[in-house]
Amino acid sequence: MSILEVKNIKKSFGKTEVLKDVSFTLEEGEVLSIIGSSGSGKTTILRCINQLETADSGFIKVNGEVFFDGENRPKKEDPKEKRRKQLLVGLVFQNFNLFPQYNVLENVTLAAKLQATELPEYKENKVKINAEIDEKAKDILGKVGLLDKLNNYPCELSGGQQQRVSIARALILEPKILFFDEPTSALDPELTGEILKVIKSLAEEKVTMVIVTHEMSFAKAVSSKVIFMDNGVIEEEGTPEEVFDNPKSHRTKEFISKFDD
């Protein structure tokens, strides 16, 4: 069973048709890169899967659970149920969206600590539970190389460091699939390397990821599967070698050739 199934997703904003029938699947442990020019619908499909937008029609299933079914929409979705599903996926934003009033450690632990308050044994074990979350956060922050910044506020960090905090913030909730929406687009070129290194190490750990990116050579190196989107449809899909070295569609060839040095 695929961990992610996207079937016939359509989405319009007003009269603009952003997604025209998008379908793909992803297996556990795979890394999917979605490439394509601006306005091709890459970000919108990510936002639809992460429940930040509601598709107009189609079907989305994550880890066997129905996220969206255009044929069979619940009249009123239970917010608690929606939040539970939300935790199956994690999203790293282009412009980080860290919480400015919290320091690095607090940014990473906030959501996990709020969730812990719903545990039945929370009242008795409050101190212990929160300490465990702190330890786990430090563990993850160590992996992304930010142990020395625990008490710093986001405004004191570089863009690359902020983005690494936001990756840690998503990882602590242990999502089944981690989504990246152009994670390096808001960064100086010299800072993109540190983010790509973190994503690469996650790929080595077999974290299932979907990455919307403009970093072609990175997409080629890290992904097990590549999708090229153009004008709201999937123009080409395959292994990195297939898409980058032997593109079948004319539009893909045109796009890829722009990045050849």
């Binding site: 930040l52 917010p79 939300q86 934003f93 400015p100 959501a111 709020l114 913030r169």
Partner: peptide, 27 residues
Amino acid sequence: ISKGQYEAGYVLGMTKSQIFRKIILKQ
């Protein structure tokens, strides 16, 4: 307050009231 702050809270599984009290209010 930018929409991204609400979205960040939302994708981290927070409730609307948690987002307002814990993220938005102080800003």
